[in-house]
Design a binder for these strands. Structure first.
Lengths: 264, 264
DNA sequence: CGTTAATTTGAGACCATTCAATTTCGGTGG
DNA sequence: CCACCGAAATTGAATGGTCTCAAATTAACG
């Protein structure tokens, strides 16, 4: 529900340019790894990606990467951290419409639009590879396979959003939260953030509430029931799945809508 | 909520092939008209579209055009009628995740996917231009601008879906229904189905309920309040907007998320 | 180790659901 | 043209899920 996030920060104040490849990996390494299996990019396509002009930036917790209504000049690929897309309603309440994990494009859908129609905000601290819009559009024009890969990414994002509509429309609080946890667990696993049955869930209860359309108070109570039923453990951002089949049952979860965002 | 739709019909039984251009217009006329303004296709691109191999089919009320989980072999463009995308949950309840109007692609997102992840069902009777998936993919490869047009369409669909998430997550019944009516009114207007402040709203109250995540009973009660407050008239599928600014206020409606799906 | 954010708890009010039963409506055949 | 039928819309009353509004407790962070 929160509208009281971090105060709006100016673009120049929100990020910090880092030396390229500060951690020894290419900033787009996760993205390219993802795209080798499914859209199956050629080696030369991958080279083109690798030599793309980009700025590696660090985004502070709560800072905005894109603001609703702004003209779209850049496109971002998430390197590390977690980022949410969100919209505000007139009462000031917030609805999160998507969660982005490392290796995903943060606002590919804005490439063909003049103005962003939602905001992108960083949970915790994150790193983003920022690429100028014309750079990406030229790349797509020159290399159709990369264009297809990006298109496929937006299609899978859309599929996830549709499942969220189902989640909010036809499941009660228990189901919604269980479903969200199942999705995030699989997606975190796909990007190597779940060594075992436990993972770091970077969302607060208030942010979970903004994902599933409930109040933080009610999210709290639902999580307690999931805990006492032995389905999960969750505290201090550490989520453990104690009973996967039970959780999928409560959440009516079938991961096929995630397509290539999970390991099959 | 209904699971009791028309009984499942076999593909061969559900449609009827019509002579091409039975009404004097090209089946893709609306689509091409839409794409001349915004993605601004060239004349040769439009020619390529006009000579595309397609089958014009009539779809009976309640029949399925795509079934969830099926392999995707075709893509459809809606010529006339109204069609919904939907998913079922384990309780048997239905959630409608999108509404498609004439001139829109019905399952463009499935072009890059192996299996459909939701079903497409015809409200009332409709006509669809069915195009084989390889035909479309070849066209996109040969004419990147058409690929972009289709991509933009999927992006706008995704934007609408995100607004639906907001609608279900952060608005009460009144707001949800008012918002849906505002959206449909503008979109129907964009395809020339609203000569004045009145239009044909082809959804039953039960179908409205499945769009906004409520029960038909509650939709009925909400509609009554909207009527008694002098905002709308709605009976027998005939919707009249009596007080547009009042309705947009109740629905917290800002149509920018519709992008090119409305006339500006 | 203090300060702020996040989580937890309680009780009452309210929105929406459930489950029928009833009425109206649109279309059909006599 | 009327009688009829099934689908859609409407109504009622009781139940239940979720919200609201605090206040208290716990955890996170510099």
């Amino acid at each position: 529900m929160s509208t009281r996030e971090q105060p709006y920060s100016q673009p120049q104040g929100r990020t910090k340019t880092l030396p390229d490849g500060a951690d020894g990996n290419h900033p787009l390494a996760l993205l390219m790894k993802r795209w080798t299996t499914r859209p199956s990019l050629s080696a030369s396509d991958r080279d083109a990606l690798a030599s793309l002009a980009l700025t590696r930036t660090r985004v502070q917790r709560g800072a905005y990467i894109v603001r609703e209504g702004e003209p779209v000049t850049h496109c971002g690929a998430l390197i590390s951290g977690v980022v949410v897309r969100q919209k505000l309603v007139s009462t000031g309440n917030r609805q999160i419409v998507a969660i982005h994990l490392p290796g995903e494009l943060v606002d590919a859908q804005n490439l063909l639009l003049d103005h962003a129609d939602d905001s992108v905000q960083s949970i915790g601290q994150s790193e983003v590879a920022v690429i100028a819009k014309p750079t990406i559009l030229d790349l797509i024009a020159a290399r159709p396979e990369i264009g297809r890969a990006i298109w496929l990414d937006t299609i899978i994002d859309a599929s996830i959003t549709r499942e969220w509509v189902v989640n909010m429309g036809r499941r009660d609080g228990r189901g919604r939260i269980a479903h969200l946890l199942c999705e995030l667990y699989l997606r975190l696993q796909a990007v190597g953030q779940c060594p075992s049955d436990r993972c770091i869930l970077p969302l607060s209860q208030e942010q979970i509430a903004d994902c599933v359309g409930l109040t933080p108070v009610h999210v709290n109570r639902v999580l307690q029931t999931l805990r006492t039923e032995g389905l999960i453990t969750l505290r201090a951002h550490r989520l453990t799945i104690l009973n996967w089949s039970g959780l999928t049952q409560v959440g009516d979860f079938d991961g096929r809508y995630l397509h290539d965002r999970i390991k099959v």
